[in-house]
Design a protein around this nucleic acid. Structure first.
Length: 201
DNA sequence: CTCTTGATCTTCT
DNA sequence: GAAGATCAAGAGC
């Protein structure tokens, strides 16, 4: 994409068709890479998903590993809903629930390439640099205004919207970020050579 | 560039 | 009472 401060804001890319909840009713390991290149908007503000991580209840690093709790119960429900949690007492992070109810799997959205509502994102983040607006799970929630109020919402209804990618992106894979358990599992997916990742692959 | 540390609080043990 | 799917700033190289 073109560089500089005005290109994306002035000419946001055309959006693909809306993604329905059914998209998430399959293996989290299929959904996660398929989300790369799709566009996430919250009240019209957002961008292209460039980095995600997959979690499953059989995975010691997953919030659902030890069974349902007040916090993670939405992970045990049907696919196609949001799961928002508080991270380190400060940040919010958003996941998309996958697979059939009870499977307790979800995809953590880790980074976006900002395309829509960039002025609003800059205002919320107190930053100008597009590269830093959404290059991490806590950052993108701040930029999109996502809080606990956005948890347990259907992903194909306002204020949330997901749009299909138009081409086939080149996807890279690696180990997940910031974990202390199951550190070695290669369940992080990203858009190859994107400048908007939270960290290089 | 990399490494370290403080901030801040909910959740679960 | 400790841990944690993070971030930003500061120090050192």
């Amino acid at each position: 994409m073109a560089q500089g401060s005005k290109s994306a804001a002035d000419h946001p890319p055309r959006l693909g068709k809306s993604i329905k909840r059914r998209f998430f009713d399959r293996s989290v390991h299929e959904v996660a890479p398929d989300l790369i290149g799709t566009t996430l908007l919250v009240d019209g503000v957002g961008g292209i998903i460039v980095e995600v991580e997959a979690y499953h209840h059989t995975d010691p690093a997953a919030h659902s590993f030890r069974g349902p709790t007040a916090r993670n119960r939405v992970m045990f429900g049907p696919p196609g809903f949001s799961y928002v949690y508080r991270s380190y007492g400060i940040h919010w992070c958003v996941n998309f629930v996958c697979e059939e109810a009870g499977s307790a799997s979800a995809v953590l959205i880790r980074a976006l390439q900002p395309t829509h509502g960039i002025p609003a994102m800059r205002r919320r983040r107190g930053l100008h640099d597009e590269r830093a607006l959404c290059s991490g799970p806590g950052k993108l929630c701040e930029a999109l205004g996502i809080t606990i109020k956005h948890s347990e919402l259907p992903l194909d209804q306002p204020p949330i919207a997901l749009h299909a990618r138009t081409g086939q992106p080149e996807i890279v894979k690696g180990i997940r970020i910031g974990l202390t358990k199951a550190v070695e599992l290669p369940w992080r997916y990203g858009l190859k050579d994107s400048k908007f990742l939270s960290k290089r692959f």
